[in-house]
Design a protein around this nucleic acid. Sequence first.
DNA 1: ATGGCTAATCGCATTAGA
Length: 287
Amino acid sequence: MRLATWNVNSAKSRLPRLLPWLDERAPDVVCLQETKLSDDDFAALFDDELAARGYAVAHHGEGRWNGVALLSRVGLDDVVRGLPGEPVFAEGGRTGTDARAVTATCGGLRVTSVYVPNGRTPDDPHYGYKLRWLDALRELVVAGDPATTVVAGDMNIAPTDDDVWDRPAFDGATHVTPDERAALAALQATGLHDVVRDRWPDERVFSYWDYRAGRFHQDQGMRIDLVLAGDGPAGRRAAAWVDRKARKGKLPSDHAPVLVDLDEAPDGDVGPMVPPPSSPAPLVRKK
DNA sequence: ATGGCTAATCGCATTAGA
């Protein structure tokens, strides 16, 4: 099973990139962030195209900002929008919650697509909101089952200094502060593995590059899009990588997709572990 | 480097991203 997460920075403007990417990479489960669409607008733009490709859809959007989705062609059940007990942002004249999480059961996994609040600056009210939101996310994971849990998305935190291109460039900024990293560590301490870093412990791996200043061309990025998996799915990891090609070319998102291939589940609930005797041995991974 | 780009919005500038 192939699982992917991608902050598309507007699904509407990324439509000409997103559909060909689905055809090329053929992921079974996709976590999207920053769709920046209402549920109705997402459905109008994507439902037919996705259905034609075999994907069921759960979208949780609000319109102008945020917006997350799950696409799955291995089942999509028990959809939950938002986080239980998610914080309310109530400062500066704004009161409410954001569309930043959606959860569903796909191919035997309990998958949550997350768009963690940016935080803006460490002294901004949005920073505390970010930490409270991460607490609520941790509560969701604690209530779940490590055998099936996957949390994937834009964490808006670089786990270590090795996950940013130049640590001093982030002095005074969010994404690298001790409190954020502690919140991420607490989330992982519930039993979640950073699948890409586990696969590439010493490599320079980024998933986001600022549009400005030729950051992508110089590979001056950050690794803030993570796939966090419980023991079950983490133990099935066959491949984990960042699809840098999707960051190239015309009108890219500023984030690249992160992909993880999982071997078949040991109990066979995703598919047979071996092909039937009459079938030739597959040369490539079964989709 | 002081936001050097991108996106959404009734926009002709502002908000937001990270």
